[in-house]
């Protein structure tokens, strides 16, 4: 036999279109997956740590109807909506379910003075400044940022808490505003149509003359 000549088989003509198709789909695929997968809506929303005491907002805030401010009583005065101290639970639990195993860490804390080590669910980066009083007193309800806490057995994060999310509302707060007296009524407004809700929000934006700031120094100070 003569010298061997390599000849591309005929099917290799297919490789060119295959490469083009791959080159056109792969980069958008990667970009899309990174944007979708690393978005705070994927990485942050749904964080639901197991707390040392199986405290249920659905029972306390929902069924028993205790107002958020009974426990988070600093929310109207300060930047922070503090987690209640052990004493607040003891107002009731010295008498209700005192021997419950679920409440053991609470009673240990009551006797020793050591804090109950609740795990923080909503956690902004340390370089961002947030203020509860500024929002709550101007008619932004807990439900806009924390969801229906009063139906949750275990608290989890429902909003991304990203900078885009903050700014979306600061640019157009109308659909999220209400009477400042109703901020802890989480079920308020759910039966309204969008148009009614926006009309109501627009009314309160005017009454309280709200103009949320978009300056960097508002939130990065």
């Amino acid at each position: 036999m003569g010298r061997y000549h390599f000849v591309f088989p005929r099917w290799s003509n297919l490789l060119l279109p295959a490469i083009i198709v791959f080159a056109l789909t792969a980069p958008p695929y990667v970009v899309f997956m990174v944007a979708w997968g690393f978005s705070p809506k994927t990485t942050d929303v749904g964080y639901m740590p197991t707390q040392p005491v199986p405290f249920s907002h659905a029972v306390h805030a929902g069924e028993l109807g205790i107002d958020c401010r009974y426990c988070h009583n600093t929310v109207e005065y300060t930047a922070m909506a503090a987690i209640p101290p052990t004493q607040t639970c003891m107002n009731c639990h010295l008498q209700v379910h005192p021997d419950s195993v679920k409440l053991k860490p609470l009673f240990e804390s009551y006797e020793t003075g050591m804090p109950v080590e609740w795990i923080k669910v909503h956690d902004l980066p340390d370089y961002a400044y947030f203020n509860h009083a500024a929002h709550v007193n101007r008619g932004v309800s807990c439900v806009e940022c924390h969801g229906r806490i009063d139906t949750m057995e275990v608290v989890h994060q429902v909003e991304p808490l990203s900078m885009k999310w903050c700014l979306d509302c600061h640019r157009e707060p109308q659909p999220h505003l209400r009477d400042p007296d109703l901020v802890t009524q989480l079920e308020w407004g759910w039966a309204m149509t969008d148009a009614e809700r926006i009309a109501e929000g627009t009314k309160w934006a005017e009454i309280n003359q709200l103009q949320p700031s978009q300056d960097c120094s508002t939130c990065h100070r």
Binding site: G37, T42, G46, Y47, M48, P49, T50
Partner: peptide
């Protein structure tokens, strides 16, 4: 990703 978005999770 769909799983991460639809189920709550315990990890940071």
């Amino acid at each position: 990703i769909i799983r991460a978005r639809s189920t709550p999770r315990d990890s940071r």
